[in-house]
Amino acid sequence: MKLITLYKKYGVLFILLALVVFFSFAAPMFFSVTNLFNISKQVAIMAILSVGMTFVLLTGGIELSMGSVISIGVVLISKMVTEADLPVAVSMMAAVATATVLGFIDGLIIAKIKVPPLIITLGMQIFLYGFTYTICNGKPVYGIPVSLKWIGQTYVLGIIPVSAVLMLIIILIGHFILTKTYLGRYFYAIGSNEETAKLSGINADKIRILAYTFCGCLVGVASIVMLGRIGSGQPSAGDGYEMDVLTGCVLGGVSLNGGKGNVGKAFAGILVIGVLSNGMALMGLDSFAQKMVKGVVLMMAVILDSLQFIEIRKKVKVVS
């Protein structure tokens, strides 16, 4: 069981290192400055989402509608800009606001009606998927102004992607909220023992709703970055993102049972996913093979997350 303790502390970093070394040999293109910044660009969206996911996971919840919220954000902005001729800034704000409200609704239902978060956010995902395809008739929206692509495709100092900078800022904000503010502490508290938290005068429902709302807001921001990167209003833009983000977070040690983890480690987990996707693509693995690998990684991450609780259960047995 010592192995697990070791893994909990440094496991992600080992995996990351091993992957980097492996791909450096297996795919010669991998270890180049261009590719590394390429990875950071690819990782940026996931990393922004991982901050929101971490908030939600810490409270003991889960958010599986991220992908389709990104899709609706992307399509919404494109539509508003190209068809309604609204200013770019207004459209972007509208997308963030929509995502925030959707997060709020998830949180409200989960906190007040005690619906299992897995099911309600999955339902939200399916609904939004259908909704997005309906409003754009299943077709991508083209004709996005250059100013929108700026975030996704511009480089600071000619080499650092703007999206990576934004990602870093958001991670820092997330880290600040979790470690410095009482809100962050409340997230941990209700995730590790809701009853204790409630009896200590913490409004658990409110805090939970807040976590989902924060998360929604970040998904909205991620949708702007996404649109900038792909350059058109694709209704399929966010497909499957929630699973990659979830895998990354859990791999990084954010527990599905709540109360454990932090954004830094979640980011390390996301990097593993990013490096893995990038490396596999460079090696020329087809998308089906990639899916198999990703599925196995998700299962491994969840198994490792649960193993720590088996350890605890054994301990209790000895005591009693």
């Binding site: 009482y182 502490r185 409340y186 941990y188 508290a189 590790s192 023992n193 009853e195 204790t196 938290a197 009896l199 200590s200 005068g201 913490i202 109360g259 454990k260």
Partner: peptide, 20 residues
């Protein structure tokens, strides 16, 4: 079950009701 955050530090348990 209802009084402590067992995994958390003593400090964090004592301050839980007055964090805000």
């Amino acid at each position: 079950r209802t009084g402590l955050l067992l995994e958390d530090s003593i400090v964090r348990n004592i301050s839980l009701a007055i964090l805000k």
